[in-house]
Amino acid sequence: MKKVGLYFGTFNPIHIGHLAIANHMVEFSTLDEVWFIITPQSPFKKKHSLLDNHHRYQMVFEAVQDYPNLKPSTIEFDLPQPNYTINTLLLLEEQYGKEHDFSLIMGEDNLKSFHKWKNYESILEHHAIYVYPRISKGKMEHQFVGHPKIIKVDAPIMEISSTFIRNAHKEGKNIKPLLPAPVWKYMDEMNFYR
């Protein structure tokens, strides 16, 4: 059975930090693959800076071309909005459950609010959560410390954000080194975030 880590995000745009974390999970944990679950633009919350789903998918697709164990996913694009992670997991289980064992990947900061997620107990009962450090390598101080399904992975701390990239690009700064080359090319050709 293939162990797949699900890395959720808007990836607006995907950057080298996302790739470094996903690749680290495949190389230095028990995961065989990481799927980038691209969160769709909610019809109820139109954000001016959020690119259309297909453009963000294309950038993730371009970014992972040289990484056979990293894959883009549009699984959430057709789910009713607002969507919850539990719904995505149920759909993935229905479609791929016989051959795949799904886990979540999240930053330590998100784990601290995980108890507020819809059906978080059910998620934890059926899925492991791989946690990477976000701000410092300090101890995880939250209610999930020591939980057998929470797996802390000593991944590199990446202080890069898509928001920073969008804002810096809009200001005319050179952000090319923060993006995989094909993502920069696509973003530049499409004149995004200017």
Rank of each mutant, 00 (worst) to 15 (best):
Y7R: 02
L70E: 01
V26N: 06
I123F: 07
D109H: 13
Y96F: 15
F114P: 04
Y130C: 01
V4R: 01
S122A: 08
F77V: 05
A168T: 00
M140Y: 12
E99I: 04
F192I: 00
P156K: 07
Q58A: 15
M1F: 08
R194K: 13
D66K: 13
Q41N: 13
M190C: 13
E121K: 14
Y120P: 03
Q41P: 04
L50N: 05
G172A: 08
F61V: 02
Q81S: 15
H15W: 09
L92G: 00
P180L: 05
F114T: 08
Y132W: 14
I123V: 14
H115A: 09
F8H: 06
E33P: 03
Q58V: 05
L89F: 01
V153H: 03
H169C: 03
H54E: 14
W35I: 06
Y57I: 07
E33T: 07
Y120H: 15
A128R: 04
T39D: 09
P72R: 04
N69R: 14
G146F: 12
E27S: 11
F192Q: 03
M187Q: 08
K152D: 01
Q41V: 12
E62K: 09
W117V: 07
A181H: 11
Y96P: 00
A155I: 05
N174I: 08
I135T: 13
E141G: 00
S73T: 09
D188R: 08
N23V: 04
N53M: 11
W35N: 07
D52Q: 11
E189W: 04
M1I: 06
D101F: 01
G146L: 08
H127F: 01
E121A: 10
N23K: 14
K152V: 08
K170A: 14
G107C: 06
G107S: 08
T10P: 01
Y130D: 00
Y96N: 07
Y96Q: 09
F11A: 02
D101N: 04
T85A: 13
K170T: 07
F44A: 07
P68Q: 09
S122T: 14
T85P: 03
G107W: 08
H100G: 00
N12V: 05
P82K: 12
K173T: 02
S73L: 10
Y57N: 01
L6N: 01
L79T: 06
T88K: 06
G146Q: 12
N83A: 13
K45Y: 09
M106L: 15
T85N: 02
P13H: 09
H100W: 03
V34T: 02
L178S: 02
I129E: 00
S113E: 14
E76G: 05
I160R: 04
V153Y: 01
D154M: 08
G172L: 12
T39Q: 11
A22Q: 03
G146N: 06
F8C: 10
R194D: 10
I135N: 15
I135L: 14
P72E: 11
K152Q: 12
Y193Q: 12
M25K: 00
K71M: 08
E93T: 10
S42G: 07
P133Q: 11
H55G: 00
T88C: 05
N83I: 13
Q143H: 05
L92N: 01
M187G: 02
N69G: 02
M190Q: 15
Y84T: 04
T85Q: 08
R56D: 03
H147Q: 10
F144T: 09
E27L: 13
F114V: 07
N174Q: 07
L31W: 00
N69M: 13
K112D: 11
K118N: 14
T74R: 15
Y193R: 05
L91Y: 08
A168W: 04
V26H: 04
